[in-house]
Amino acid sequence: MMTPALISGIVGFLLTLMVLSYLIGDNALFRFAVHIFVGVSAGVVAVVALYQVILPYLLIPLATAPMLERGLLIVPLILGALLLMKMSPRLSWLGGPAMGYLVGAGAAVAIGGAVLGTIFPQVGAAAEPFDVIGLSQRGINPLPSLFNGVVMLVGTVGTLAYFHFGARRKEDGSIKRNGLIEAFAWVGKFFVALTLGVLFAGVYAAALAALIERIHSLLTLFTLFGS
């Protein structure tokens, strides 16, 4: 008997084979699977946007909310309608204000969060290992923390120096960076390589976990057929 789990397992098995067929090169099966994923994703997003954004945020309040709220909802309604004008090349300019509002608001939120949520806390965290007295008062051995702080400092400065491309022309006509910057850049090169290696390892680990999960699902399907 074909249960939903079995049907979904078969579909998943076929789509997995189609995607893995990319190992032998780009082919129609791979493109077919990709098109299915794109289409399904778009459909899901459209349904989600309709049922979880437009209806609860706009249409239902317009129908049920008090008059004052309805008046306020005209603004997002107009902006949303103007955004639809982007689909027409002739009328796309009408969507400019709405798009500008979105980009401006998003940039302001992102910058504010980056300054207050990343830069300031990270600067404070980078300086904390050098607070030997504070660490001692909290009962923490300051030497390992200080060592970590020095490593982080050297790595940070070295990485910044590695991406510093300013240089001066010497008397013999050669262009060379400052000796101190050159030394830090040489050290920073190792930190950059180490960081990229760690990121690559993380990507590989994530992809490997996904591969294992897919093969395990396929084996599970075979087990179901076998049973």
């Binding site: 965290a125 990121l199 993380g202 990507v203 680990a205």
Partner: peptide, 13 residues
């Protein structure tokens, strides 16, 4: 695993 190295600084902070 691919995002963990970038989250580590927030953990340390």
């Amino acid at each position: 695993a691919q995002a963990a190295p970038m989250i580590q600084p927030y953990l340390l902070s």
